[in-house]
Design a binder for these strands. Structure first.
Lengths: 336, 336
DNA sequence: ATGAAAGCGCTAACAC
DNA sequence: GTGTTAGCGCTTTCAT
């Protein structure tokens, strides 16, 4: 803890009132203004004393007594990914508006770690959970939701589970950017994806297939599934793609995009002259690297805002589950 | 919180002992084995009951009573940076070994946010702080350290402040890689750095200057300082560098390295034929992007391990400041 | 409009 | 070896 801190008792004594009153004043200065139950002047005096004594409420005591920590736990799949890093930032800002804090964990796409991190957060006493599922995390999520913890899923969903979620319309987004590649003259588009079994990746693949199918039977498809974090296979994959006459790539993530684009440049080719490229998510490197790239810009701020709204609604409704499950599907913006 | 949880009281009743005993058993099963004060069989019985009832200790109550949260707060300067993302992971693992948890915040290189995040962590009741300073965070750090919170600085230091720290020998590392560029035939090396006033960046610049000076008076130096997160100036800078006959670049960070390397490729040049490149920190993209690149590999695991050792030593010594301030300087490894 | 009193779940003296 | 007794700082009935 900080230091030999000032307590409401000190303030009560100093202001000549009861601790109850101090408690009340301190709790209601942050939130709205239910001015009943406290005299204008008394309140002012208490607040002034609190200010002067540099009173900082002890959250631990608050939490113990009230059962609420005003903290929500967030588990992302990979905090090093710019997409999630930004989500994290936005969630923090959103939470702040509600008078809440956020504490983070990263599963690193590992279901065991996912479970551990969730346990740690729960043990720290979070009031709710915002989770980005990873492959294999279904059981852990089911357990948490089953135990009555307010939960919202982000970016990815778990089919067949009664839980609120905020995801992108991945299938449609993938369809649109693939279509755009075709419109720009691509005749043979490969999709580069992950082998992980995750809802959004699967949906993106589906959208790719949709677009190619719509284009006509003369167009072929190929989905190259890369194992997460083992990218050695990319050079040989690229060679084979070239031999197959591929003239465009659609990537499921910006990491994959960067990797494939690097390979393209490394082999002396250019974008978009030699290969056209489309992908998901923005990256600062695009600007100077591949100005003409087509990409899906996910509305990160909406992800954060909607997720926070959902979780707050659940938390505030209390254990009397009156808030219905809600599945929010966000529309993508396309750039390039 | 989780659910209608089981308390030590329940266990005490069920096992026919006092809550004190239960408390003692629960607290000492995690840590070492000071077996005094508890009967072999009683202990076993208590643990068995705890197990059966699925007892989970309430950390909030523990924290309130004991004043310790077994949690340390970490503030990094940018959680989206792979270097810090890995540090974060390692710190988590290290903390786990001591029976501690870690909670993160990111300052985003913004001193106001730095202060806010530190306050939030302190308010949540962390037992200690591991901080990556950012430009302008000196006052906030001074205040925290002054108030007696156990603190360790990581990656960057604040000169003239009595606080333990773990940093790389940045000056020497920079000198070595610059020297290596010279050995490989570079005649005109520019350094690309940040304009932020941060100890490690300054040290790296110094090391660069050292190496060039050692090489002889016929070698010129140029340090290009980029403003954090505004990279539009890079193309024009690159043009000017080319005109000045620059044949090698030394970058202060991997972000800068990626940006400059992209610019090099974009202009149709190659590494290392047209330009030689050296930089700090590893990046997955190097492998396929610039195989011959020279880079400083920071011993991330040592950063985490040493920092955790220092903070634990301080925490365990209690408020009776017997542990001396320690400045740990790690040696770099050079690759390429 | 205000206060007294009872704890939240746990740990730490201090008995025995 | 084990139990009793106090609280940690705060919120929350329930009186007044």
């Amino acid at each position: 803890m900080a230091k030999s801190s000032v307590t409401i008792k000190d303030i009560a004594k100093e202001a000549g009132v009861s601790t109850t009153l101090v408690s009340f004043v301190m709790s209601n200065q942050v939130a709205g203004e239910p001015v009943y139950r406290v005299g204008e002047d008394t309140a002012r005096r208490v607040m002034e004393v609190a200010e002067r004594l540099q009173y900082k409420p002890n959250n631990t005591a608050r939490a113990l007594r009230s059962g609420k920590t005003l903290t929500i736990g967030v588990v992302v799949s990979d905090i090093a990914n710019p997409f999630f890093a930004e989500i994290a930032r936005d969630l923090e800002d959103q939470a702040y508006k509600y008078g809440y804090n956020v504490i983070f964990g990263s599963s690193d796409e590992n279901p065991e770690k996912f479970g551990r991190v969730v346990d740690v957060l729960l043990n720290k006493g979070v009031d709710g959970l915002i989770l980005v599922p990873c492959a294999g995390s279904e059981d852990a999520i089911r357990k948490v939701v089953g135990s009555g913890v307010d939960t919202v899923l982000l970016d990815r969903e778990v089919p067949g589970l009664q839980v609120s979620s905020v995801v992108l319309d991945n299938r449609e987004a993938a369809r649109v950017i693939t279509r755009k590649l075709l419109d720009r003259g691509a005749r043979r588009i490969d999709m580069v994806s992950y082998s992980m079994n995750i809802s959004n990746t699967r949906d993106r693949e589906q959208g790719y297939l949709d677009a190619i199918k719509e284009a006509g039977p003369e167009f072929e498809t190929h989905i190259e599934r890369i194992t997460h974090n083992s990218y050695d296979s990319i050079p040989s994959y690229f060679r084979s793609a070239r031999e197959r006459g591929v003239d465009a790539f659609m990537m499921a993530t910006n990491t994959l995009a960067l990797l494939v684009m690097s390979e393209i440049y490394k082999n002396g080719y250019h974008i978009p002259d030699d290969f056209k490229v489309a992908c998901f998510d923005r990256n600062p490197l695009y600007d100077i690297y591949a100005p003409g790239i087509i990409f899906v810009r996910q509305p990160v701020d909406s992800f954060a805002a909607r997720a926070m709204e959902l979780i707050m609604a659940r938390i505030r409704s209390g254990p009397g589950r009156k808030v219905p499950i809600e599945q929010i599907v966000l529309s993508p913006e396309i750039s390039g």
